[in-house]
């Protein structure tokens, strides 16, 4: 069996039509197989270069929504999810997964290979790039998160802060159009959190970030979406929503 083989046509992102949202979700509802309804009629649009925070209590449906953006939960019950104008279906999946860089909350789930290099190379390899391209992408992605030279390191030897950075690199190497992060600052000590915030600020890429870290939201994200019990209850400029004490309190959020 050949150790390395690639598709004839590597997945290369087609340009986004001008003015179209990177992510368009309309009237999405979803229930898990145990009957638990996680999403009710959720609609959001995210345009290129936006940095959007997704907040709300645990169980609000944030993570479920994020999994849908990558087509991981399969068919949704109704509603529409489009990534770069493409509906989510079996044929589009490889393209959609290359465009949406989804980073899970626990870096130990995200980093499943023994070495950092293998993990960052996983995406590009499955997109069908040839070896030199894969290596170049790994180098670049590690550079983007400030982890140059960590390729040969073993994942289980890294600190949590380092793991979080590498987890982001594992999707940056796929050149996504949007970065979708699930609670990136959770579990970090103040110094690691600060360095992560600086990293997120520097990355010139569209972002949707779920978090409980309201200080980070105020600092980094001009737009904020509040979810509760599967509904989008508010979507607007962060300063406006942050000053609405009644709204925040109603959904278990604290004003920073």
């Amino acid at each position: 069996m050949p150790v390395f083989h690639h598709r004839a046509d590597p997945i290369i992102a087609s340009p986004l039509p001008a003015g179209a949202p990177v992510i368009a979700v309309h009237g999405l509802s979803f229930a898990y197989s145990d009957g638990h309804v996680a999403l009710h009629e959720v609609s959001i649009d995210i345009h290129a270069q936006e940095k959007v925070a997704l907040v709300g209590p645990n169980g609000a449906g944030k993570s479920t929504l994020m999994l849908h953006l990558n087509g991981i939960l399969g068919q949704h019950d109704n509603g529409r999810v489009q990534v770069s104008g493409m509906p989510i279906n079996r044929a589009n999946l490889p393209h959609i997964r290359a465009k949406v860089g989804l980073v899970f909350q626990n870096p130990d789930d995200q980093l499943f290979s023994p070495t950092v290099f293998e993990d960052v190379a996983f995406g590009p390899l499955h997109m069908g790039f040839a070896e030199p391209d894969v290596r170049a992408r790994v180098e670049r992605a590690l550079g983007q998160v400030g982890m140059e030279g960590f390729g040969e390191r073993l994942s289980h030897h890294l600190s949590i802060g380092q793991k979080k950075r590498i987890a982001i690199a594992t999707v940056l190497s796929m050149d996504p159009e949007i970065l979708v992060l699930d609670e990136p600052s959770a579990g970090l000590d103040p110094r690691a959190r600060r360095s992560l915030i600086n990293l997120l600020r520097q990355l010139p890429i569209t972002m949707l970030v779920s978090t409980h870290d309201m200080l980070m939201v105020r600092e980094l994200f001009p737009r904020m979406i509040i979810m509760d019990e599967g509904h989008v209850v508010a979507d607007g400029p962060t300063p406006a929503l942050m000053s609405d004490a009644a709204l925040l309190e109603a959904h278990g959020l604290e004003m920073p």
Binding site: F4, I72, D108, D109, F122, G123, H126, M127, E131, M174
Partner: peptide, 24 residues
Amino acid sequence: ERSDRVYNAMLARGYDGRLLTLNP
């Protein structure tokens, strides 16, 4: 449960059942 989450993380990065590696 962890194996489920890891599988999702693999899917999210384009895993399609093939186990590809580069040989250094």
